[in-house]
Design a binder for these strands. Sequence first.
RNA 1: GCUGCUGUAGCUCAGUGGUAGAGCACUCCCUUGGUAAGGGAGAGGUCCAGGGUUCGAGUCCCUGCAGCAGCACCA
Length: 647
Amino acid sequence: MPAITLPDGTVRRYDGPVTGTAVAASIGPGLAKAALAMELDGRLLDLGTEITDDAALRFVTRRDEAALGMIRHDAAHVLAEAVQGLYPGTQVTIGPAIENGFYYDFARNEPFTPDDFPAIEARMREIVAANAPFQREEWPREEAIAFFEARGERYKAELIRDLPESETISIYRQGEWLDLCRGPHMRGTGDVGTAFKLMKVAGAYWRGDHRNPMLTRIYGTAWRDAKELDAHLHQLEEAERRDHRRIGREMDLFHVQEEATGQVFWHPKGWRLYSTVQEYMRRAQNRNGYQEVRTPLLVDRALWEASGHWENYREHMFVASVEDEQERRVLALKPMNCPCHVQIFRHGLRSYRELPLRMAEFGACHRYEPSGALHGIMRVRGFVQDDAHIFCTEAQIAPETARFVAMLAEVYRDLGFDGFRVKFADRPDNRAGDDASWDKSEAALVEACRLAGVEYELNPGEGAFYGPKLEFVLRDAIGRDWQCGTLQVDTVLPERLDASYVGEDSARHRPVMLHRAILGSFERFLGILIEQFAGRFPLWLAPVQVVVATIVSDAEPYALEVADALRRAGLAVQADTANEKINAKIRTHSLQRVPVILVVGRKEAEARTVAMRRLGGADQELLGVQEAVAALALEAAAPDLRRGTAA
RNA sequence: GCUGCUGUAGCUCAGUGGUAGAGCACUCCCUUGGUAAGGGAGAGGUCCAGGGUUCGAGUCCCUGCAGCAGCACCA
């Protein structure tokens, strides 16, 4: 006699076990038509599942957020059926729903290409139109293995073999086709709808392990209706329009070339942007009690052996060797700054009175990243970290964490980001240090988060090899997430490199090292910043802040005078006195995303005024020269400096 | 690193085994104009590199390099 509680609180009683389909039908024909699946005591289930006990029930309809995942998962099944129908001999493996869509991994000797998509999509639409019901069956394990092996589906057979004994082997049929699947599914293939599209084809390792064979993955996107699909496709276009590689080229910020793969040639405008951010960061660090240092790029391998990097990351380090009659020395370009900072800390006796000691460096690091990892200026082999190490006592971990999070929040806000999330990455499989010290450092970091009021989600097993870390994830203007900041608790490196200080008790103690960065690397962060603003930077960050454009050549001397006044006020200004019409000049500099154009013609030259036009705006403002210079100089000040002058 | 795709002028891209193309950008000339493209002329090429097939290769094949997408990696 199940009693079923609906979301509005009403309770319906049934004489015996009843399916979700029957419950929906007993409530009303509208719901019977709309219900795709159900949530029973919070568990998403097929409508066909029998309800035997008292439970809270909620029906999932197409409008429900939960429907999206089901549409995508079902679409993956439809894709698999379509592919096996069109390309016999292709083995199926797995096909989950993912953010924005789904994929399915196939094993086939021939690769798929996007040219195959129209045929596959057409077949998928036929399958959807046929609306075969999804039918769940439970099979004995051995039977299932034998079935898939007989069909040559060795990946499926392997999956079943590796399922825990306790797991029920469930099979979902859709018409003639079937697949091993945990479920749940909607009523039938028709519920997938038509708002899907195959997107790309790519290789992917079987079970995500690079030692396994590579499968062919087909990605698709799927939505509840055509409007959502269009919005998603539009968002992808927007992301492409903002691509930092494209904007970097269009605005002449930087380039990369074969002779220095994975390293950036910063052009004058790009370097101005870089410098503006670096100067801002330097001021932020100074305000927050950091001492800036500079350490060598090329360091003897002995130090990397001592730190453990040689053992763990040798193949990802750039190694240099020198030879003379006496000896051969092997050095490596530093892949990180920490061991060098420890050398400064170790130089001379340190007192507890000096702690916490915050040592910062804009540290140029080099890592031989795998070729496939390189991406524009976001993932490179030569980069500069806004790195710092805080040498402190265990008791200082919490207050230093709080202080760091406050600094990071201010920096992100100043640089134009609304908010960030925090992830807590705990001990990885491959790690240094014993479990007791991991217990201690993880507990310390948890406590620090509590004291600092930091809420986080867990990112299990993703810590650094020497300690747990907090990861700070930015969300950009079009909703993409970027991990930039980090704070890591390290008790291993001070031990390995023998860092110590003299305590109040006049005995030697090990400091804790907090590794921390806010931007991560300048290269990556500037790439993110470019995409965040789509190249339309606020005035203080813009690499060219003002263009003074003439209408007639008679205004040229005046235009140069105005540009000079702006330059002396510290603004990045260009004069455009070219033999072009003002329309063309406006267009050129607007495409270059220059925030302010000052137009000067005969009238302005005579009245000593400028006509100021903002990027994207249609109207203009007539100002006196001095007035314009003063206003722009004020507006172009970095946010921290503006707060300073306002205070 | 792995799978697939791509590499032609500064940029975006055409190019059928038979003399290397367009638009934009660039230079010069005309034009002196009022807020997103004025007109004309000119210059610009190791067709990624090396090897092979062929009477003949930008085009076909092989190797390498680089880029793109994804996977794996990311101290």
